[in-house]
């Protein structure tokens, strides 16, 4: 149960960062934390205690394998996360170029 708890703590930290931090980069980091927590959670789902990795080709008897699919999925999700994070950071840098600040509360030209 502990790993799941860790997951949730990571998730909450991420939320905390997004909600309270004013710096764009910190928000991006918080967002990454969120993403990691979800990925971690996904990876944990496939885990089974004392199970083998599912790579044996010929087995004589039924064995307890770890579920391989979540790992594949997490890999995909990490790639997607990479893409979003990269885009997020590049936009943040462009914003800094234009606004000369990282403070999210200063960046409010679009309102009402």
């Amino acid at each position: 149960m502990l790993p799941y708890l860790g997951c949730i703590i990571l998730f909450l930290i991420g939320i905390y960062a997004i909600l309270t931090k004013r710096n764009l980069i910190k928000i991006a980091i918080g967002f990454c934390l969120l993403e990691y927590s979800v990925n971690l959670f996904f990876a944990f789902i496939g885990y089974k205690k004392d199970a083998l990795a599912p790579i044996y080709a010929n087995l004589s008897q039924a064995r307890n394998f770890v579920d391989p699919i979540p790992q594949a999925l997490v890999l995909t999700a990490i790639v997607i996360g990479l893409g979003t994070t990269a885009l997020l950071l590049s936009v943040a840098l462009r914003i800094y170029e234009k606004y000369k600040t990282f403070d999210i509360k200063e960046i409010k030209r679009l309102k009402e």
């Binding site: 997004i18 909600l19 309270t20 004013r22 928000i27 999210i104 509360k105 960046i107 409010k108 030209r109 679009l110 309102k111 009402e112």
Partner: peptide
């Protein structure tokens, strides 16, 4: 006025 322009408020 709800649309304040501040991301934290939205979140």
């Amino acid at each position: 006025k709800i649309q304040s322009g501040i991301l934290s408020d939205y979140l």
